[in-house]
Simulated assay, not measured.
Amino acid sequence: MPQSGEMMDWLRHMKVGQSIEKVNTGKLEVSLLASKNGTEIIHHTLHEGGSWGLTPQDGWNELESVFVISGCLAYTSGDRQGIVSPGDTISTEPVKDHVIFTALEDTTFLYICSNAVFHFYSEITQKFQQLAVDIEQKDGYTADHCERIRRNSLLIGQRMNLSSYQLHCLNFGSFFHDIGKIDVPDTILLKPATLTHEEFDIMKRHPEFGKKILCSTGLPHLHDASTIVEQHHERFNGSGYPNHLKGDAIEVGAAIVAVIDSFDAMTSKRPYKRAKPEAWAIDEIISGRGSLYHPDVVDAFLASVDDITKS
Rank of each mutant, 00 (worst) to 15 (best):
R270G: 07
F236R: 04
T92M: 09
N24G: 12
T142Q: 15
D134S: 14
I282Q: 10
V229T: 06
I256A: 00
A193Q: 11
A116L: 12
K310N: 14
K212W: 11
K276Q: 12
G59C: 05
Q137G: 09
A143L: 14
G53K: 02
T45M: 09
P2S: 07
Q166V: 00
S51F: 04
D9G: 07
I286W: 02
P242T: 01
E198D: 07
K211P: 03
N243W: 13
M266L: 14
S91T: 12
S85R: 09
T125S: 15
A193I: 11
I135D: 08
L54A: 00
R270K: 09
R151M: 09
K273D: 04
D306K: 13
G210F: 13
F236T: 03
T187I: 11
G17R: 07
N237Y: 06
D88T: 02
T45I: 10
P2V: 14
S163M: 00
A116T: 07
E198T: 04
V257L: 07
C215K: 13
T217D: 01
T142P: 05
E6S: 12
Y241N: 14
D264A: 05
P86E: 01
V305S: 06
P220K: 06
H145N: 05
V298S: 03
G140T: 14
K181C: 11
N161P: 08
S216I: 04
L32T: 01
K181V: 12
H294L: 12
Y75P: 05
S226Y: 10
F200V: 04
R274V: 14
C113A: 13
I112V: 05
G38F: 09
V305W: 06
P94H: 02
C72E: 14
V305I: 10
T196S: 15
D299K: 03
S262P: 06
H44K: 08
N171D: 15
A255P: 00
N171A: 14
A279G: 07
L245M: 08
H168I: 00
V99M: 03
T107E: 08
E234I: 00
Q158K: 11
Y272T: 02
S239W: 06
I42T: 06
A258L: 06
Q130S: 10
D79E: 11
H168P: 02
R151Q: 13
V68L: 05
L104H: 03
F67R: 05
T102I: 03
I260L: 13
S85I: 09
R289T: 07
E48T: 08
D9I: 13
I90M: 13
Y272A: 05
K269R: 11
F301E: 06
S77I: 11
K211A: 11
K138A: 08
T76Y: 10
A275F: 08
I260P: 07
F120K: 11
A255Q: 05
G17E: 15
T108R: 13
D186L: 12
L32I: 00
Q166R: 00
E40P: 02
L73V: 02
T187E: 15
F236L: 09
D224G: 00
N171T: 11
L63S: 08
Q126Y: 14
F209A: 10
N161S: 09
D248E: 12
T125F: 15
Y111H: 04
L131A: 04
V259A: 01
K22Y: 14
E123S: 11
S311E: 15
E199C: 02
Y165W: 10
G140Q: 13
L189Y: 04
D299H: 02
D299S: 08
L245W: 09
D201M: 15
I250P: 02
T55E: 06
